[in-house]
């Protein structure tokens, strides 16, 4: 497993850590060792919208040692029904800076790095290279596919989340072990650029993404690896779909080099 387990031995929890994280350290299978693993971990949150805001709040609360926030947009009034790290006074501000300001007040022991850039084929690998995992907070599949490709190339887990209205989906991609995004959706889904969303939908999917991140980094529990969890908020149904690797996948397929 790639995440920061090897480094955890070199980290120690302070008295303050043991108080702050005491209630989660109590959890069987996690304990102080799990907390140390979070402390030495680096998570990239790609996108600071409806998913990325709540995801970065809970990553910060949980005690992730280093979080990198990436977005290329400025805060707008129309963001405020769901992007809960941005306030009215932040309209016009760069989203990573707006988010970092609140996260620093929430947990001063978490190191926050901000990157105000569009994620592209050219810079994606550089942005994620030092991360233990990447949280998908993107609002379009084009950039998701760029991140997916970069994560596969770097062998970094990628926790995919997507929402529409009251519907959401999530899966955890472990390069080389599970299907990647291009196995699941061989054609890049191309949506209309504006679609409906209630703030509660990305909030729900984001906390599930962080739950996956905590388990993955600390090394316990069963991940949504090779499974897509789909949520229907109209009926409150959660359903799972098994996913299969595509041997001909142009990103992670075993036969891709023969193409």
């Amino acid at each position: 497993m790639r995440p920061g387990c090897d480094r955890a031995a070199h980290y120690r929890l302070t008295e303050s850590d043991l108080i702050r994280y005491g209630r989660q350290v109590l959890y069987g299978g996690f304990g102080e060792e799990g907390q140390k693993r979070l402390k030495c971990s680096h998570v990239v949150v790609a996108g600071l919208g409806g998913l990325g805001c709540p995801a970065s709040i809970y990553l910060t609360c949980a005690g992730i040692g280093h979080i990198t926030l990436v977005d290329c947009d400025y805060v707008e009034l129309s963001n405020l029904n769901r992007q809960i790290l941005h306030y009215e006074e932040n309209i016009g501000m760069e989203k990573p800076a707006s988010a970092a300001e609140k996260l620093a007040r929430l947990n001063s022991t978490t190191r926050i790095t901000t990157i105000f850039e569009r994620i592209t084929e050219e810079n994606a690998r550089q942005i994620i290279r030092e991360a233990d995992l990447v949280i998908d907070g993107m609002d379009n599949f084009g950039t998701r596919f760029i991140l997916n490709k970069a994560c596969v190339a770097e062998g970094i887990p990628f926790i995919h989340g997507g929402i529409y209205g009251l519907f959401g989906q999530i899966t955890t991609i472990l390069p080389g072990k599970t299907p990647c995004l291009a196995c699941i959706f061989p054609e890049v889904p191309s949506h209309r650029s504006i679609f409906p969303v209630f703030g509660v939908t990305p909030a729900l999917i984001a906390v599930l993404q962080v739950m996956e991140a905590i388990k993955l980094l600390a090394g316990f529990g069963r991940l949504l690896a090779g499974r897509m969890l789909c949520f229907n908020g109209e009926t409150m149904d959660f359903v799972y779909h098994d996913l299969r690797r595509n041997p001909d996948c142009k990103i992670c397929g075993r036969r891709k080099d023969e193409h």
Binding site: G52, I163, Q169, P186, P189, H241, L243, N246
Partner: peptide
């Protein structure tokens, strides 16, 4: 189960359930 790459040509039999699902794009 997803039917890629045969989304419109996967065989079905009596009692099967076919589902059309929207891929949620937002974030």
């Amino acid at each position: 189960k997803y039917t890629y790459p045969k989304q419109l040509s996967t065989p079905v039999k009596d009692g099967d359930e076919v589902e059309i699902r929207l891929i949620a794009p937002g974030g």
